[in-house]
């Protein structure tokens, strides 16, 4: 599995983060982050809460502003220029812990909204694309319902489909299964695994270590706003180097 996954990674750089720092007021949340993500690479980011992992991926599509350093996504440098930010956001899909579907729109409208307004896709074409991706996440029959009528797992799969409708080149997942019942975690992870097997570039903040073993090319461990350790999953889980990583792994894998 790991071998085939590695072969899909190209040399092309999708995201390059150099010496990035971020502060909340005087609190230094992200410290000297350096990270290069190649096209087709699947990265799992883990770490204790408050370690800055969510903040890191939220910086990539400018939901959070960084104060120092350089972030380059798909060849576009993130600056305060709104045009650049909107361009990057339309290329980068994001799934949230709490799904954040639009409750006043149907599932289909949730999926077609951004393609119609941002990409200026004709309505009919956008609806066809939306149905295609809803089939892919296995809930085409819910298209005319409202998000409030769906289960958590279904809502998260809609959120994934909604992002995919923009045909993103990179997908960010911010703890996509943390708000779900154990039974629903699997259906969401299966969707994500399928996506990974198609070669999507993914950055995923998650504590699902089984998922990390199965699909990640690289696992990154963060603590106190820094990248403490990164390695291929086998080596990361079987032979962690830093004592902080060893402690973390012993705690989450211990029971």
């Amino acid at each position: 599995m790991a071998e085939t996954a590695k072969m899909q990674v190209s040399d092309e750089v999708a995201i390059s983060i150099q010496n990035m720092n971020k502060w909340y007021g005087t609190f230094h949340v992200l410290r000297d982050i350096d990270l290069t993500v190649h096209r087709g690479e699947r990265i799992v980011i883990c770490g204790p809460s408050g370690s800055g992992k969510s903040t890191l991926i939220r910086c990539i599509n400018a939901l959070e502003e960084h104060q120092k350093g350089k972030i380059e996504v798909d060849g576009t440098i993130l600056s305060s220029d709104l045009k650049n930010i909107d361009k990057i956001r339309s290329e980068v899909g994001m799934c949230f812990q709490h799904f954040n579907l639009f409750p006043h729109l149907t599932i289909l409208e949730n999926c077609t909204l951004a393609p119609i307004w941002v990409r200026k896709t004709p309505k009919k074409e956008a609806e066809e694309t939306a149905m295609h991706f809803l089939k892919k996440v296995k809930i085409p029959e819910q298209a005319d319902k409202y998000p409030g009528q769906l289960s958590g797992g279904q809502q998260q799969r809609v959120a994934i489909a909604r992002s995919l409708c923009m045909r993103p080149r990179i997908m960010l997942f911010d703890e996509p299964t943390s708000a779900l019942d154990p039974e629903m975690i699997k259906e969401v992870l299966d969707t994500m695994i399928e996506l990974a097997e198609e070669g999507m570039t993914m950055l995923c903040v998650t504590h699902e270590m089984g998922f990390a073993r199965q699909v990640a090319n690289r696992v990154i461990f963060m603590d106190e706003g820094q990248i403490v350790e990164q390695n291929e999953p086998e080596a990361f889980f079987n032979n962690p180097q830093s004592p902080r990583t060893q402690l973390f792994l012993s705690q989450i894998l211990g029971h």
């Binding site: 599509n61 939901l63 949230f96 954040n100 951004a114 307004w117 992002s163």
Partner: peptide, 10 residues
């Protein structure tokens, strides 16, 4: 809701 709208590029 604001973040989801932003993340879609609206």
């Amino acid at each position: 809701q604001y973040e989801a709208a932003d993340s879609l590029g609206l």
